[in-house]
């Protein structure tokens, strides 16, 4: 259809206007704000690249980036395999398969603040459930152990804090169900005769999982992996809500670093925060664009 100019405007203008106003313009705004100094008095003054210099020489920024990277790798290496394994287990005739799926997916509909509050109790150092469980399992001295799940300090500047692992368990708890559903849909789409052919040839169940299910799941794995990667760059909620007790240099990812610089009490460093935001945006582009291109090529093949 070849529409008139007025029709085209009617269709496109509203969405484009809102999107430009509240998503695109703020990104450009970040760029502008990162070149100004906002802390000296009521009006910002030009600051050149000072903010970038400050961010790039800040150890907290690099530790935050490291944490993002660790979450990314852990999501790919731990969370997705767990989801895939559960999906394969559920792919056999199972009683109440729907119930399992519903239960695993349930945390996805909860607000992250609720998840964080709940897990803060599970991880309480003296009487949290996780500590109590360890006390029961450990003999002797361990029975009165106090475990600082969420306030462990890191032993070297090259390593993230062990508490990040504790938070990652919560992240898994929240998201495994989501990837599980994707994988279950992927497995359900595999033609039954592939399984039958493999069984007739005498393949063991492990071999079937390895040589029939996994190869057919490749498109689904690509989707899950892409979402995990984009998601770990965006990660904010649980780290901000659960990381409060960690050392100031250990507890950030880039998103929380931006937030704390700009909005935590007495900070108001909009320039430095914006500089970090611009860097995050560039990093996201640098990772996401090649990823999408690769996926497009894959789906064409």
């Amino acid at each position: 259809m070849k529409p008139s100019k007025a029709t085209l405007l009617l269709f496109l203008l509203p969405a484009t206007a809102v999107f430009v106003c509240f998503a695109l313009a703020p990104i450009l705004g970040s760029l502008a704000m990162s070149l100004l100094n906002w802390t000296q008095g009521p009006r910002p003054i030009p600051a050149g690249l000072d903010n970038y210099r400050r961010v790039l020489t800040d150890i907290v920024f690099w530790r935050a980036a490291l944490n993002n990277l660790v979450i990314l790798v852990a999501s790919l290496a731990i969370q997705l395999p767990i989801a895939a394994a559960l999906a394969i287990l559920l792919s056999y005739p199972t009683r109440c398969r729907g119930l399992f799926r519903t239960a695993f997916f349930a945390p996805m509909v909860m607000p992250t603040i609720a998840i964080a509050l709940l897990w803060l109790y599970l991880y309480a150092p003296v009487d949290g459930l996780a500590t109590r469980l360890c006390q029961r399992l450990l003999p002797g001295q361990g029975q009165t152990a106090v475990i600082h799940w969420l306030s462990a300090t890191s032993s070297s500047i090259w390593l993230p804090s062990p508490s990040l692992a504790a938070i990652f368990v919560t992240i898994c708890w929240q998201y495994v169900g989501f990837h599980l559903v994707l994988f279950m849909a992927g497995i359900a789409a595999i033609p039954q005769d592939h399984f039958e052919a493999a069984r007739l040839d005498g393949a063991s169940e492990l071999q079937i999982a390895r040589h029939v299910i996994l190869p057919s799941l490749r498109p689904t794995i690509a989707v899950s992996a892409t979402l995990s990667i984009i998601g770990s760059l965006k990660y904010f909620d649980l780290i901000y809500l659960m990381g409060g007790a960690m050392a100031e240099t250990d507890r950030e990812v880039i998103a929380t670093y931006i937030y704390r610089l700009a909005f935590e009490q007495g900070q108001g460093r909009f320039g430095q925060g914006s500089a970090a935001a611009v860097l995050l945006f560039l990093a996201a582009l640098a990772i996401v664009i090649p990823l999408q291109r690769w996926r497009l090529r894959q789906s064409r093949d």
Binding site: A23, I27, A255, A277, V278
Partner: peptide, 8 residues
Amino acid sequence: PVHVTLIP
């Protein structure tokens, strides 16, 4: 990431 737009 949406957090890029928080400050502006």
